[in-house]
Design a binder for these strands. Structure first.
Lengths: 348, 348
DNA sequence: TGGTGATTTGGTAGCGCTACCATTTTTTTC
DNA sequence: GAAAAAAATGGTAGCGCTACCAAATCACCA
């Protein structure tokens, strides 16, 4: 029975998991706890000899720091909440992937939050995650409830708003000009000689970035002298199935249409796959354009013309901006246009 | 200059963000801090009158609990780390989605970790995330480094291992019998009359669940009296592109093949899309089967025969098992076979 | 009306760590 | 070689919250 070195009534006040603590390491190494703390956090302030003794004690005891305690005592917990509208949309996943691949090697962990496009939920999620004393934070979009915005500003730590670009971000901003991107595809369709062009999207009631792209689409058509404005939409989240549905709906309702501008590649792919099935020729019978640059697009027949956005890279860059600020410096720029690219392929 | 009510040299020892604390609420409501804590955590132990006064103070001051401090003082932090091999594989994303949609409404936050299929990284990630005093945890697979396994056992809190099914889990287990699933598709192909069947997969060196499916495939073929065993593999992660590559490689190397059993639907979809493009008829020229049940499969021409696994549901169930245990009870079962289903469609 | 038990409130002592300052030791300088 | 500066180590006091126990209040019944 290993009573305990100190021999006392070690009843361990709380429910302690009996984890090895910094104190244990200190005892083992014969130094003060604070010195162990230093050896781990700012090794340059500890003499080489002690450092080694402490490192040995750490591995001998299998010590793992309690980040919660550290977070309470100092500041951040090396947690970075990432708040996105949805986890069922590939776009956000790819951004998160980029973020995660960049933050994890730097010793930060990603805390996931999703809002289902509901700004009210976003606001309450902000409250919750701020409770974890995060070191920084990444949020989607530039529009938030006033309460959330106020709290984030008061919070005062590094924050990157992604996906969208605007004048008035809280701290840092990286994204694309959605209006521009929408206009880009519309212009392309017009240049290809199409006149009767529809825009097809989903969930545009809550996804205002999709609305921005639609807005760009309309402006571009107008600029080209096309006044008619055809819109098909659906409330379900984007999927191949909804793309297929919107495609059939459009064919049925407006057989005269020459080109379809889909709000994203999922929808566009669903349309092309259905076209393949029912023998509609793309682009001869009808042209199809998308947005995002999903890899699937390149494997379709015909390959999908799309406006690609470097989603993974956006995540990486957002994380880098955050890291730059976390590590005391400041990012090269606090407002980054990650850009987009029109990929003209055979579907238009 | 608002010096401070107490009038003192309020230098605020640390770097405090000046956040409203429980103490502030207590002062505002005219009660002891501990009472506020109770009003928030176990309101049934506080009289209605006080409860209301405290609630008012909370919203008047905009108090948000510091979960870090709470986590340190009590036990868990209401954080649930979810450790997966990769965030670029749709399967894991869908599982995470299910987990997140179930845990978030219950007041738990998901902490994301990815291992890149490296058990060494997994072990160190386990150390890191345990540092956050999580309330519970979800991990992928049943095989871990001995050190990680030891720590998790010693940790003693709810843990669900997902994706795979086995006799010896650490705490709770939900998943599918990969060997069985692999055998299921192979049997189907044999029953359809195909004899010369290949298995095509990626990253099988590190993805042992894919190896298990291959193993099942082999056993089924053997059981059917087919001794030849053709395997094509690639080291890159699964993608449409790699599926296409493997498909062409197989056609080229073994023109006599009758059926291709792909390790997942991403690969199989890449193959069908390429077949469409180069005019290979599926299944007349060659049959194609997959694994997972990605929605894309249903939109291909021909539609993809696959073994579906309810990935989102697996996430939901894993989270429910965890919640059951976290809330003091115990899950209906600590080992759940989420099952799979052979979806026979036109590609075989 | 006093005594018993149930309910409600409060006090105290940490959870494990680090900021801040004090002390000791080493190095540098004239 | 002594004084001054720099570097290395330690002590103490919390970070904001909750577990545990003690005290006070209330309800109830003989």
């Amino acid at each position: 029975m290993s009573t305990n070195k100190t021999g006392g009534r070690e009843r361990r006040r709380h429910h302690g998991d009996n984890r090895v603590t910094l104190k244990d390491v200190a005892r083992e190494a014969g130094v003060a706890p604070i010195t162990v703390s230093r050896a781990l956090n700012t090794p340059e302030n500890v003499s080489a000899g002690l450092r080694e003794r402490i490192d040995n004690a750490v591995s001998a005891l299998g010590y793992v720091p309690n980040l919660i305690a550290g977070g309470l005592a100092s500041a951040g917990t090396r947690v970075i909440p990432v708040v996105v509208p949805s986890l069922s949309i590939l776009t956000y996943i790819e951004v998160i992937h980029g973020i995660q691949q960049t933050l994890e090697p730097a010793g930060y962990q990603v805390l996931l939050g999703s809002t289902d496009f509901d700004l009210e939920r976003e606001a309450s999620l902000v409250d919750t995650v701020l409770g974890y004393s995060p070191s920084g934070m990444i949020m989607t979009g530039l529009r938030h409830r006033e309460s959330a915005e106020r709290r984030l500003k008061a919070w005062g730590r590094p924050l990157v708003e992604i996906m969208e670009l605007g004048e008035t971000c809280i701290d840092m901003n990286i994204g694309v000009e959605n209006t521009e991107a929408g206009a880009c595809m519309a212009r392309h369709l017009v240049e290809q000689g199409y006149q009767r062009i529809a825009f097809l999207g989903t969930g545009m009631a809550h996804d205002y970035r999709a609305r921005l792209r639609y807005e760009g689409h309309r402006q571009a058509l107008k600029a080209a002298g096309i006044e008619s404005d055809v819109l098909f939409q659906d409330d379900q989240p984007s999927s191949y199935e909804v793309g297929r549905k919107l495609f059939l709906e459009a064919l049925d309702a407006r057989p005269d249409l020459q080109a379809l501008h889909f709000a994203n590649d999922n929808l566009a792919a669903g349309a092309i796959l259905e076209a393949n099935r029912i023998g509609v020729r793309v682009p001869q019978d009808i042209a199809i354009g998308g947005y995002l640059g999903l890899s699937l697009g390149e494997h379709l027949t015909p390959r999908l013309t799309t406006v690609t956005v470097p989603r993974y890279e956006m995540g990486v860059e957002a994380a880098k901006m955050l890291l730059a600020k976390l590590e005391g410096g400041s990012p090269a720029s606090s407002r980054v246009d990650i850009g987009y690219e029109l990929k003209v392929r055979e579907s238009t």
